[in-house]
């Protein structure tokens, strides 16, 4: 069992930091600034939701924060590791050991069992298997009886729980989730969001989640409202109604 008392607490060194982050697509008159001189701090142990209208730059921001894409300007740190200006190999190492991903479409490898999918990041990055940590994750996510099954034998909620276990197996500093409940029904969504929140509270994990769903955002400890490539506002300890109100206000400002 992982000793969660050692997990980073809010107030410790930041889990994720961005300064002056800028990303543009295209050139000339057709140029679009997806992320515009953004400053961002994500504390350890926090579940942060990023919300905003389509085309506001949320997905691009996640790409940049994860080192999946490189910014035109600005810098990104995951813990003490700076992601900007490093080689592809170094970025791959960061992605493998420091950052975890949860995808909207689960992205499990269909030919591998649930266990093998969970262990994949360890094998890809030549990391040792921590059996206790694996058991902790499996117990917390309630997938102990599903480990031998192939993804196509699991329900959507079960697949996403396997994907969360996969994201957490390397004990990353931060987990980035892009619409993690986008393909799930209400019940399965609630389960997944509870698991993500539990991973922050019980395991000290930092999670950054992009979502369109105010209910999903209400599970977060903080909601960042995103518009035109910038953080237009934030809501601490949000309720569903507060999130909806925030989105309404954002829409009025945009109009």
């Amino acid at each position: 069992m992982k000793d969660t008392t050692e997990a980073a607490q809010p107030g410790d060194a930041l889990a994720l930091r961005a300064r002056g982050l800028t990303k543009r697509y295209g050139s000339g008159p057709a140029a679009v600034t997806a992320v515009d001189h953004l400053d961002l701090d994500i504390a350890p142990g926090e579940l942060t939701a990023i919300m905003g209208p389509s085309g506001s730059g949320k997905t691009t921001l996640v790409h940049l924060l994860a080192g999946l894409d490189s910014p035109d300007e600005g810098r990104v740190w995951v813990g003490d590791d700076e992601l900007t200006g490093i080689s592809d190999a170094a970025l791959a190492r960061v992605r493998g050991r420091v950052v975890g991903f949860v995808f909207q479409g689960f992205n499990l490898l269909q030919t591998m069992s649930a266990r093998d999918n969970i262990m994949l990041p360890l094998r890809l990055n030549a990391l040792p298997t921590d059996k206790k940590w694996l058991d902790t994750l499996v117990d917390m996510l309630g997938i102990g009886s599903e480990l031998a099954r192939k993804p196509y034998e699991l329900s959507g909620g079960q697949q996403q729980r396997v994907a969360i276990a996969r994201a957490l197996i390397t004990e990353p500093r931060v987990v980035l989730a892009d619409e993690p409940t986008g393909n799930l029904d209400v019940h399965a969504s609630a389960q997944i969001l509870s698991h993500l929140r539990a991973s922050c509270r019980e395991l000290g994990q930092s999670v950054v989640m992009v979502t369109h769903d105010p209910t999903a955002a209400s599970y977060a400890s903080k909601v960042l409202l995103f518009a035109d490539g910038q953080v237009a506002g934030h809501i601490d300890n949000p309720s569903r109604e507060a999130v909806l109100a925030g989105l309404d206000a954002l829409a009025k400002v945009e109009r």
């Binding site: 999946l68 791959a92 490898l109 990041p121 990055n125």
Partner: peptide, 9 residues
């Protein structure tokens, strides 16, 4: 997906 999990080119 595999690259996002740390696999190199």
């Amino acid at each position: 997906t595999v690259r996002a999990m740390g696999a190199r080119r």
